[in-house]
Design a protein around this nucleic acid. Structure first.
Length: 209
DNA sequence: CGGTGGATCTGA
DNA sequence: CAGATCCACCGG
């Protein structure tokens, strides 16, 4: 069963549902322990100025405007490939950014890809490292994650994490809508990335320095 | 802390 | 077209 067969919730709800799910790609299995929710354009149900889709559809973000359960890959800061799962109905962009995971299988493969990792817990810690751990490329953009024949698949958790196991806070690196607590992680996981507020982050109405 | 790095978007 | 921006990471 994929996202499309479930009833849709708002992006934070979909983000919570994905927590604890497992991503599989080329012999590597990762359990997702940290995510962020992103909405869409100003005239949609979840206006979100921090979302790539906020200013409308472009060639890069087109996947988020399609059906749910597809992988949206983008290049961040010129060097890191980050992964999102589209989670809105077809035509209504919303996405969940996959920020960190615990490597469940394929440690050797990941270790070879991530020589800089200093511990097992940091192999897929942080969105760029997660993409690197799974060997994701821009060519994987658009992959149908709930198609068993896809090279990359996402399995939803059999049981949703209890809400007292999930913590939330402001999104990382987001300079607008910083008051919105749309980042979720599994409390106690050592693979959750360390929080860094965007250097430019301001709450709505907060005066400019 | 600073250096690194490239696709993408915006507005001339 | 050039310039600004961007949902980071690493080493020191």
């Amino acid at each position: 069963m994929g996202l499309a067969e479930l009833e849709y919730g708002d992006p934070p709800e979909m983000a919570r549902r994905i927590l604890g799910g497992t991503l599989t790609a080329g012999g590597v299995v990762v359990r997702i322990v940290e995510v962020e929710a992103y909405g869409g354009p100003i005239d949609g149900p979840w206006p979100d100025p921090a979302a790539h889709s906020y200013r409308g559809q472009t060639n890069r973000n087109a996947v988020m405007f399609g059906p749910a359960g597809r992988l949206y890959v983008y290049l961040s800061y010129g060097m890191h490939l980050c992964m999102n799962v589209s989670c809105g109905p077809d035509g209504t962009p919303a996405a969940v950014l996959l920020r960190a995971g615990e490597v469940v299988d394929g440690h050797d493969i990941v270790a070879a890809r991530r020589p800089a990792a200093r511990s097992a817990a940091s192999l897929a810690k942080g969105p760029g490292n997660l993409g690197s751990a799974l060997g994701i490329g821009l060519a994987d953009n658009g992959t149908a994650l709930f198609d068993a024949d896809s090279p990359i698949t996402l399995a939803m958790p059999l049981f949703a994490a209890y809400s007292d196991e999930i913590a939330s806070g402001p999104r990382v690196g987001v300079s607008v809508a910083a008051e919105r607590e749309w980042r979720f992680w599994i409390r106690g996981s050592s693979s959750v990335s360390s929080y860094r507020r965007s250097p430019k982050a301001r709450l709505v109405g907060e005066p400019e320095a």
